[in-house]
C-alpha cells in the first residue's frame, strides 16, 4: 500500500506551491496567465514540440517554448517586453501537438492581454478597434467594392452594420464598457501624434 512520505511541514508546503520565486520573478504572473488562458503552462517539460511546429520560428527569434518557460518561472517583464510576443500567427499547431495538453497559443494571447494593460501593443491592433468603433467592420466596405456588389445584383452595402447603422451605438457601448476606444485613441495619439 502506498504511504505518504512524512516530509517536514515547511518542505511539504513548498512542494505544494507550484510557483517560482526570485528577485526578478512574479509568481502571481504565472497564476494570472493561467487564469486568462484557461491553460496550464506550469506543466511544460520543455520538449520543444511547440517551437518545432511553429511557422514563425524558422524566420525569426520567436521561440514559443521560451515564452512558456518564462510564464512558469514568473518572468513577467522579460516576457511582456519582448517584441517577439507579437509574432504568433495563432495557427494553433503547437496547441494541437503539445504532449502536456497545454495551449501555448492561448498562453501567448493571455500575455498579450497583460502587455496591453501596460500600453505595450502594436498600433495596427488598435486601428482595427477604431475601424470597428466607427463602422462595425474591421475591414470596411469601399467604393470599388460597392460598385462590384451592385454589378452582382446585390445591395451596395452588405446587410451588416453597414446597412443597419442603428446597431452601431450598441457596439460602441460594448467597447466603451471596457474603455477600449479611449485607450486605443490615447495610445495611437501618443505614438503617431
Amino acid at each position: 500500500m502506498a504511504r505518504i512520505k512524512g516530509y517536514p511541514e515547511a518542505l511539504e508546503a513548498k512542494l505544494r506551491d507550484r510557483y517560482v520565486y526570485g528577485e526578478d520573478t512574479n509568481g502571481k504572473f504565472t497564476e494570472t496567465v493561467e487564469k486568462i488562458s484557461m491553460s496550464i503552462p506550469h506543466m511544460c517539460y520543455q520538449c520543444g514540440t511547440c517551437t518545432a511546429s511553429c511557422p514563425s520560428a524558422p524566420r525569426s527569434s520567436y521561440r514559443i517554448r521560451k515564452f512558456v518557460r518564462r510564464v512558469a518561472l514568473g518572468l513577467e517583464t522579460e516576457a511582456l517586453t519582448d517584441p517577439d510576443l507579437w509574432l504568433c500567427t495563432t495557427c494553433y499547431s503547437c496547441t494541437d501537438r503539445c504532449p502536456r495538453d497545454i495551449a501555448p497559443t492561448d498562453v501567448i494571447m493571455a500575455m498579450r492581454n497583460l502587455a496591453f494593460k501596460r500600453d505595450i501593443i502594436p498600433v495596427n491592433f488598435l486601428k482595427t478597434v477604431q475601424a470597428i468603433y466607427t463602422t462595425g467592420h474591421g475591414v470596411p466596405n469601399n467604393d470599388v467594392n460597392r460598385a462590384a456588389r451592385v454589378k452582382l445584383g446585390m445591395d451596395a452595402d452588405p446587410p451588416t452594420t453597414h446597412t443597419y447603422k442603428e446597431f452601431i451605438p450598441g457596439i460602441q457601448k460594448i467597447l466603451d464598457y471596457y474603455k477600449l476606444k479611449a485607450n486605443a485613441d490615447r495610445i495611437v495619439k501618443e505614438r503617431e501624434g
Partner: peptide
Amino acid sequence: KGASCCPAPGAFGSI
C-alpha cells in the same frame, strides 16, 4: 441583419 466584425480573433483576442 446588423451583424458586425466577428471581431477579428487575432486583433481583439490579443487586446
